[in-house]
């Protein structure tokens, strides 16, 4: 399967990538990592790119990493549409102090607009 994972710059993104790497290795999927432009997040796009490269390296996994500029939800869906991807993977929500699962606007945009199957990682 051809898998595209979209990453912002949060801890949730790191977890999403770690789980996706693990899954990719078990299954033997082809993986592409898209690092999104999200100026308000904890890590800059450049930092996230380096972190993703290091995680892939540690796992000894060959995967293309791309930087996508512009609105994160729409650039990710565009990129997925142009490639031959079977599945799009994104973070699946954060927890509020109360423990409520919260899905952000990017997640909603991707779910409603992606042409492929979308996987939310918790």
């Amino acid at each position: 399967m051809n898998v595209l994972v979209g990453l912002g710059g949060s801890d949730e993104s790191i977890k999403t990538l770690e789980q996706t790497i693990e899954r990719t290795q078990e299954i033997g999927d082809e993986l592409t990592v898209a690092v999104l432009e999200k100026p308000e997040s904890e890590r800059s796009q450049a930092e996230m790119y380096d972190t993703a490269a290091a995680l892939l390296d540690d796992a000894d996994l060959e995967a293309e990493i791309v930087r996508l500029e512009g609105d994160p939800g729409s650039s990710l869906v565009d990129y997925a549409e142009q490639g031959e991807y079977d599945q799009l993977v994104i973070g699946g929500g954060t927890l509020s102090p109360m423990g409520k699962i919260q899905l952000g606007p990017i997640t909603e945009f991707v779910l409603l607009n992606a042409p492929t199957t979308v996987k939310l990682v918790r």
Partner: peptide, 18 residues
């Protein structure tokens, strides 16, 4: 949005955590 959890143990640990 996922709360309350189900099952006595998960309910208890949810309430204890908050």
């Amino acid at each position: 949005q996922g709360i309350p959890p189900t099952g006595e143990d998960r309910i208890r640990s949810w309430l204890e955590s908050i």
